[in-house]
Design a protein around this nucleic acid. Sequence first.
DNA 1: TCATTTATTTTGTCCTAGACATATTTGACA
DNA 2: TGTCAAATATGTCTAGGACAAAATAAATGA
Lengths: 303, 303
Amino acid sequence: MSEEISLFNIGVVERETGIGKDTLRVWEKRYGFPLPVRDQHEDRLYPAEQVDRLRLIRRLLDIGMRPAKVVGLSYPELNALLTQTPGDEPVYSAELLEFVELIKAHQAGELKLALNLALLRQGMGDFLSKTIHPLNLLVGDAWLRGEIHVFEEHLYSEQIISVLRTAITTIRNPRGTPRVLLTTLPGEEHSLGLLMAEATLSLSGAYCMMLGVQTPISEIVLAVQAHQADVLTLSFSSAMPAAQVKSGVEQVRKALPETVSLWIGGAGVQKQRNVEPGIQVMGPLSDLTGAVLAWRAAVSSNG
Amino acid sequence: MSEEISLFNIGVVERETGIGKDTLRVWEKRYGFPLPVRDQHEDRLYPAEQVDRLRLIRRLLDIGMRPAKVVGLSYPELNALLTQTPGDEPVYSAELLEFVELIKAHQAGELKLALNLALLRQGMGDFLSKTIHPLNLLVGDAWLRGEIHVFEEHLYSEQIISVLRTAITTIRNPRGTPRVLLTTLPGEEHSLGLLMAEATLSLSGAYCMMLGVQTPISEIVLAVQAHQADVLTLSFSSAMPAAQVKSGVEQVRKALPETVSLWIGGAGVQKQRNVEPGIQVMGPLSDLTGAVLAWRAAVSSNG
DNA sequence: TCATTTATTTTGTCCTAGACATATTTGACA
DNA sequence: TGTCAAATATGTCTAGGACAAAATAAATGA
């Protein structure tokens, strides 16, 4: 009985790694990797090991490395490259590292408990900026080094989402201003950033209308009208290609009335340069609080 | 000054409609639609109107129509086709229709309130089977008829998710059996079905570990090991192509130890035929309750 | 030496045209 | 009416080529 190894066709690999078919084929030609086997019909079949490497490569590209430097490399070479990337590592507090230990130990219940505890102790504002945000970075970093798995990251996200949603419910103000619509564009499926934005905005007294992820552009325009939103907030994760962010945001801006403010944030917008007028780029979450205050000031002076 | 119309390139259309690039090109050749304009480089540029039609077509295909029948049609023709599809329409209660009215009126707060009320009155079990499930069908149906928009569906989903998450938190039992891991495969991004499954399973006394959507297959295997899960539950929405469901599920089954049960459910699995052994297809949500009981019975007789 | 502009390379995404496995439908037969 | 085989419909894969936008390297000037 021969050892059966998992083989994936190009469509599955595209879904599993987020790397497009065209890109996979052109990498094969240019860098000699991935180099899938072929079935009887010359269709590509990627071994699981290559798919794992591709996922790692994807993450390295997301943090700014170039394909020519990483696409050819073997697993050990990739790891060597990773560990020698000290750079600007912030010092993480013991508390944050304890959260990571809980994640690695798969203690979902305890993790959630600890998060809720931190929330109560620090208050929502500090909780978001001093715990959740650095923890996200730390977890992403640990993932990159192969210290934690995707499924552990998923479990972690679920706990955060659960804690944040519960908290947001308690501070929602239906008569708050401005009226903010929150969503992501098609292709962006990460809801965590959006949820953090909702928490921050709600905390600043804004009224939030959450649409979830991946709303088509034309539907966003309709939603803004229907809800008489003053502000549209879009969130982009680091996984989003900068070009896609740029074109998407510009398309939205063009379709929206000028009176509606457009705030964009998340790791995916930090690479953006030369942002068009009428689009406000948010850095840290605290920028949202400032933007809310600025919006109110502008309204009271104009109206 | 000429009227500026929104044009989308093929990559954006793929993301916005969920129809692959290859399919878009081959439809153009075979059915003459969509028929995009071209830029100076012969690259396709799809007008917004065609993208809207594509979204409609996508939905029609999801409910079983064939491309040859619908891909060529104009907007009026599509609508005619829709309204003349009475078929097996169940009679919806007045209460359900009131929910829809709230959705159409964009009364998110009131909608959530009404849902919570129904939950308390009916209890979780009935709430899921007699309110949420038919309401999902009703909303999907209304969407199909153009009576409600995507963004309204999004807002609706958010309220349901919020209500269910809150409720699940209160009935979680860390020592429950069996230990069930819940997630979806890459490509399936709908979390609502998953959440309803979690609610039902928790209600039956199972211990649920929610991984969220789109966990790569290899990671699912690791997660099952790490959490010592007895059961893996995968959810598929109707938007999932049947072929993708089949190959994905079989891949998972092959990679999983035989001792781990595999339960699959959601609208996307109802079309499946000739399901391989070791895979249990769930119909209505109540099947999950039965499966839990059957699992316990099997364990107590075997061990 | 540093900043700014310009040339070169890199890289992702698009193109055409064709092939074929699988799912669905049609037609023949019992 | 039900079952099986032939025909059709459909999505996804292949190859090889092209080019714009982004990133890097080189050249220029202060």
